[in-house]
């Protein structure tokens, strides 16, 4: 323990990239269980109110959902490519690719803002008089829609902050071709956000 700490202090301490990545995966499992619990609630209510879920889902715009899916898949591509770029020593290409990812994430949030904004305009928000007059299954559907896509959007916002941090690390040479495990961990988080959306999209938008 003390010898290890001394070695780190001398600058040639041992680095455990595999351990770091495994730690990141363990964190992702807690996220899996967090969203997994909500998917179970969704499954149970959809099972008990099948027709009302179908009716409520027609309120959602499939085109907006599809565009956001394409945006997130593309952002996953750019963050994955940024790791190849840093492995090949192309610092600024890697920086630019993470930058693209951040811009795509912001585009996703802008779409989400207009989508939610439109729902609020037509009175479909939690607790609104219009929604409360609908059958219980539709109220449940919109409750789940707001909580699940809302929690996902919160993850997108956190992802933007994390990835912006990665850009700063790349610019300051804290992430280099010889040490890029932080970028890998940031990328893993972003891919998880993408995977959650891969399931949210068909469950909420493609119910017709």
């Amino acid at each position: 323990m003390t010898s290890g700490a001394a070695a780190v202090a001398q600058g040639h301490g041992h680095r455990d990239d595999v351990g770091a990545k495994l730690g990141m995966w363990l964190f992702l499992f807690t996220e899996l269980i967090l969203f997994g619990g909500m998917f179970i609630v969704y499954a149970v209510y959809r099972f008990s109110h099948p027709t009302e879920f179908h009716v409520a889902a027609t309120e959602l715009d499939t085109l907006v959902g599809t565009i956001n899916t394409i945006i997130l898949l593309t952002s996953s591509l750019t963050v994955a490519m940024s790791i190849t770029a840093i492995q090949k020593g192309n610092k600024w290409l890697s920086f630019t690719l993470v930058g693209f990812t951040v811009m795509l994430a912001l585009a996703f949030l802008v779409n989400k803002y207009f989508e939610w904004g439109h729902k609020f305009e037509v009175g479909l928000y939690p607790g609104s008089a219009i929604l409360l007059n609908k059958p219980p299954g539709e109220i449940l559907y919109f409750g789940l829609y707001y909580v699940m896509t809302g929690l996902h959007a919160l993850h997108v916002i956190i992802g933007v902050v994390v990835l912006a941090g990665m850009m700063m690390f790349i610019a300051k040479d804290k992430i280099t071709r010889h040490s890029y495990v932080r970028l890998e961990a940031g990328g893993l988080y972003w891919h998880l956000v993408d995977i959650i959306w891969i399931f949210l999209f068909p469950l909420f938008y493609l119910l017709h």
Binding site: S76, L77, G187, L188, H191, D194, I195, I198
Partner: peptide, 8 residues
């Protein structure tokens, strides 16, 4: 696909 390739 995402887990195997993008997430290595």
């Amino acid at each position: 696909l995402v887990a195997n390739i993008f997430m290595h």
